[in-house]
C-alpha cells in the first residue's frame, strides 16, 4: 500500500462577482493531477505560482473538498474518513501565521497536543524532545511573538510532529527564511526522512528539491506534466546547453526577440537589482552566443557563460519558460 494515492484530482473555485448583477466565475485551480507516494519517500511537488500546489496540499490535508477525483492517505479516503486521515498526517503551510503569538512555544505545543488527544504524560516528554529537535531548546517558555520567522517555522515543525504522524505535507516551508535558516530547516527535513516519515514537499527552490526529493512531480495549470526522479527530470534537457547572459535593463521586446529565435528552446529571466540574468536553453551551446549577442541589439552585456543544464532548466522547459 502506498502512503499517498491521488487519482485524477480536480478542484474548481467558484466566486461571485458584482453587487447587483451577480455572476459566478469559475477558476480551475487543479484540473487533473495523479500521483502516488511510497511509504518513507520524500516526494516533491513543483510548479509555477498558481499551478495548483497549495490547493493540492489543502485537499491532501482534509482542508478542502475536491470537486472530482479521490485521495487516500495510508488507505483512508480524505473526504469520507477525514478524521482517520487527520490522526496520521501533519502539515505546514509556509509563512509565520498559524501559531498563537501571545502564547509561549510550550503552550502552543501543549494546546495542539490536546487537540490531537495526546496523553499528557507523553506530551510532557515529547514537547521538550521536539523543541530540542528543531533547535528551540531553552526558548520554549518565550512568547512566540518574539520569535524570528525561522524559529516560527521550526516551531511549526514541532507542532506538526506532536502526534508522531506517518505522513507530512510541507507547503513551501522555507519561503521567506534567510539562507542559514533555510539550510537548518532542510536539515530538519532530512532528519525526518531518517525517521521513515513519508514527506510531500512543495517548493520554488529547485536546488532544494534536487537535494532533498526522491521523486518530483511537476505540475502546471493544474495538471501533472512530469513525474520522475531529479536525475530523470534532468534528462528532459540532456540535449540542451544553457547560455547565461548578464544584461542591464534589456527591454521586453528585445527579450521577446530572443525567445522567437528558431534555435532557442526556452528563456527565463531573473531580475537582480539593476541586472538581468537571461538563461537561454538551446541545442547549439556556445555556437549560439554570437547570434544571441546580435539579437540583444547593442544592449549592454556583462558576463556570458555556457553550462550544463540543471533541474531548474528541466523545470523551465517543462513549464514552458515561465519563471
Amino acid at each position: 500500500m502506498n502512503a499517498i494515492e491521488v487519482n485524477h484530482l480536480k478542484r474548481v473555485y467558484r466566486a461571485a462577482i458584482g453587487v447587483f448583477k451577480r455572476s459566478i466565475k469559475e477558476v480551475v485551480a487543479v484540473d487533473d493531477i495523479s500521483f502516488s507516494v511510497e511509504k518513507g519517500e520524500l516526494f516533491g511537488l513543483l510548479g509555477p505560482n498558481g499551478a495548483g500546489k497549495t490547493t493540492t496540499v489543502k485537499m491532501l490535508a482534509t482542508l478542502l473538498i475536491p470537486t472530482a477525483g479521490n485521495i487516500s492517505i495510508m488507505g483512508f479516503d480524505v473526504v469520507k474518513q477525514a478524521n482517520e486521515v487527520r490522526k496520521r498526517i501533519g502539515f505546514i503551510f509556509g509563512g509565520e501565521r498559524g501559531l498563537y503569538w501571545r502564547l509561549s512555544a510550550e503552550d502552543n505545543l501543549r494546546y495542539f497536543a490536546s487537540l490531537y488527544g495526546a496523553d499528557p504524560e507523553v506530551s510532557k516528554k515529547r514537547i521538550p524532545y521536539l523543541l530540542e529537535m528543531v533547535g528551540l531548546k531553552g526558548r520554549g517558555n518565550e512568547r512566540v511573538e518574539g520569535y524570528s520567522r525561522g524559529m516560527k517555522q521550526r516551531l511549526h515543525v514541532a507542532r506538526t510532529l506532536l502526534h508522531d504522524p506517518e505522513v507530512l505535507f510541507l507547503d513551501e516551508p522555507t519561503i521567506g527564511l534567510d539562507p542559514v535558516g533555510a539550510r537548518e530547516f532542510r536539515q530538519v527535513i532530512l532528519d525526518l526522512q531518517t525517521e521513515k516519515k513519508t514527506i510531500l514537499l512543495t517548493t520554488h527552490y529547485m536546488f532544494e528539491a534536487d537535494a532533498l526529493c526522491d521523486r518530483i512531480a511537476v505540475i502546471d495549470k493544474g495538471c501533472t506534466v512530469a513525474l520522475d526522479t531529479p536525475g530523470g527530470l534532468k534528462k528532459h534537457v540532456s540535449d540542451l546547453s544553457i547560455v547565461e547572459m548578464e544584461t542591464f535593463g534589456a527591454p521586453e521586446e528585445v527579450l521577446n526577440g530572443i525567445r522567437a529565435l528558431p534555435f532557442v528552446d526556452a528563456v527565463s529571466v531573473e531580475d537582480q537589482d539593476q541586472r538581468q540574468l537571461l538563461k537561454v536553453q538551446t541545442e547549439r551551446g556556445a555556437e549560439a552566443v554570437p547570434d544571441l549577442m546580435a539579437a540583444l541589439d547593442g544592449q549592454r552585456v556583462g558576463r556570458v557563460i555556457v553550462r550544463e543544464p540543471t533541474l531548474e532548466d528541466a523545470y523551465v522547459r517543462l513549464v514552458g519558460g515561465k519563471v
Partner: peptide
C-alpha cells in the same frame, strides 16, 4: 486572524469541546 483555523480543523479534535 491568527491563521490557526486550518490547523484546528486539520486535527481530529472533538468539535463540541473545541
Amino acid at each position: 486572524w491568527a491563521g490557526t483555523l486550518p490547523y484546528l480543523f486539520g486535527t481530529p479534535a472533538n468539535r463540541v469541546m473545541l
